Amino acid sequence: MWNHFAEAWQLAPFGQYIFNSSFTAIIIVLIQVLNSALIAYAFTQFTFRGKNVLFAIVLLTYMLPAAATYVPSYVILANLNMLDTYEGLILSNAVSVFGIFLFRQAFMQIPKELIEAARMDGAGHFLVLWRIVYPLSKPTFISFALISLVQNYNSYLWPSLIMNSAEKQLITTGLRQFFIQEGAYGIQWPLIMAASTFAILPLLLLFALAQKWFINGISDQGLK
């Protein structure tokens, strides 16, 4: 019933929860895309001693269970006085090993002749990355950004460990708090379903928009 949406919205600050999740997820995605692209570019375009060993070490960190990193990450944030802060949440998620691997695989498919021609014309590495590499691997950028945004928006366990202030709760932890508050909402399933709709609505809008961008990215891969 429509009145359940209005009632659920008034019982908890879902607008603030959605803003917190969207804001932190977008910042994290921007940082991850930037550093993943830069690191992948270095692995594919630079030649230096120990490159393969270094990449293997990066991949090995991806094999660690996420829960195994929570204690040392918590201690580091505590020493930096970044617990219960947006900065701590963003910093602790600033690097994506999956993004580095994904971009590296995409960059390896780009013809080296294009990059060599750009370098001969005097283009620097950042210009090559922006004008050559990025347009030819745009679908990879869009796909990773979408995956990372959904993952960070839906993140629950780690934010619940380091974020304690009510005004800084993400939508996942806020929804759980709404569910268990005073033991009442656990039996009010219409309100729970309405609140869950608030949580997934931004993702539905994201998929509707990202589908168009993804198709445009695929159709813009022709060599010019």
Rank of each mutant, 00 (worst) to 15 (best):
A166R: 10
A184Y: 13
G174D: 02
E116H: 05
T69M: 15
F178K: 00
D220E: 14
T197N: 01
H125L: 08
L54A: 11
K51S: 09
F23V: 13
S219D: 08
A66E: 15
P13F: 07
S21H: 01
K112C: 04
S73T: 15
N20L: 05
L38W: 03
S165F: 13
I171E: 03
Q188G: 02
L161W: 05
G124Q: 00
F178L: 01
A145T: 02
R49H: 15
I142C: 00
S73L: 09
L54D: 08
A8W: 04
T173K: 00
L91T: 09
I31Y: 11
L60V: 15
Q211T: 10
L60P: 04
I31H: 07
I76A: 11
A117F: 03
Y185F: 14
L149M: 13
F55Q: 04
I26A: 15
A67D: 14
Q105R: 09
P111N: 01
M120E: 07
G122F: 12
F101L: 11
K112F: 10
K212C: 04
I27P: 00
F207W: 02
I147E: 03
T69G: 13
M108T: 12
E87A: 11
V71E: 06
L80C: 08
E113S: 09
N79V: 02
A94R: 07
W213M: 09
A184D: 10
V71C: 14
I28Y: 08
E7L: 07
Y153M: 05
Q188D: 11
I110N: 00
V75S: 14
I100C: 03
A67I: 14
S160V: 01
A6S: 13
L203V: 04
L204G: 14
T61R: 07
I110L: 03
D84M: 05
S92Y: 06
G122W: 13
I147D: 03
V58W: 06
I192S: 01
Y62M: 15
L91A: 12
A6D: 13
G88R: 02
I26N: 06
P190E: 03
K212S: 07
P159M: 03
D220P: 04
F98S: 09
